[in-house]
Design a protein around this nucleic acid. Structure first.
Lengths: 119, 119
DNA sequence: TGAACATGTGAACAGATATTCATATGAAAG
DNA sequence: CTTTCATATGAATATCTGTTCACATGTTCA
């Protein structure tokens, strides 16, 4: 993997010993991956204001109904959204307050309300 | 884009009028996209414990030095990490406290310390 | 039951991405 | 200056992903 390069074995050991479980790492990356798409962020932002059915979201996002449905399934698997049936329609809303917190912090970060570390 | 399907025009208008700027949406999605990869999450978690040089990270991640370097560049562009030269070596550390907050919330989410909304 | 409608699903494809290999850059020590 | 070492960069590639199209599912109402 690496031929020769600088390695400080003490640092490596220190960090290796205090590592998160692999499963948690994968799950965390997966959540961010699902949030890492403009369409899905738009969906979350929309659902923040109001629960909406698939057709509403399709009109708002300007992608096909099918596309919205695919995205919603992914987001449901990650417990980002939940659904509720009302007659023929299915209304989607946010499932977990963590998601709103994540997006708020990300907005702070990108709008440079930047809590810069160590100067 | 959509043939015929349920749309509630009032809802669509309500949501459309109170939307985030497109630029912010894209930037937010981009931050999450960069965090949405297990290797990069591992890098952040490592740098949380200690600043490290590229060789250390390469050893820890078990990917090539070149691979680490590529990832660090991406993360630097998003102000996730910063670097400091010391002789031949370049030490990387976290750049912005927002990132740690994001990961902490994501860990809470995936470990089901789940603040479920509306029951 | 059957027509109409809202949503879900699978295949397909264009475009993005993570990684490696080979090589370039740039600092440091002889 | 030359060599050595740590890191950066570019090309190449296998894999993944977002979207659409065509169709399936399941609910409502006549």
């Amino acid at each position: 993997m690496s031929n020769k390069c600088c390695v400080n074995p003490e640092n490596v050991e220190l960090v290796r010993s205090s590592r998160l479980e692999d499963g948690v790492i994968l799950d965390v990356a997966q959540i961010f991956k699902v949030l890492g798409d403009p369409t899905r962020i738009r969906i979350v932002e929309a659902l923040r204001i109001r629960e909406l059915c698939v057709g509403d979201l399709s009109a708002l996002m300007e992608i096909s109904q099918s596309g919205v449905s695919h995205q919603l399934r992914v987001m449901k698997q990650e417990r980002i959204v939940k659904s509720r049936r009302e007659g023929k329609m299915i209304y989607y809303s946010l499932d977990d307050a963590h998601i709103e917190a994540l997006i708020d912090i990300a907005i702070e970060h990108v709008t440079h309300q930047g809590v810069r570390k160590n100067g």
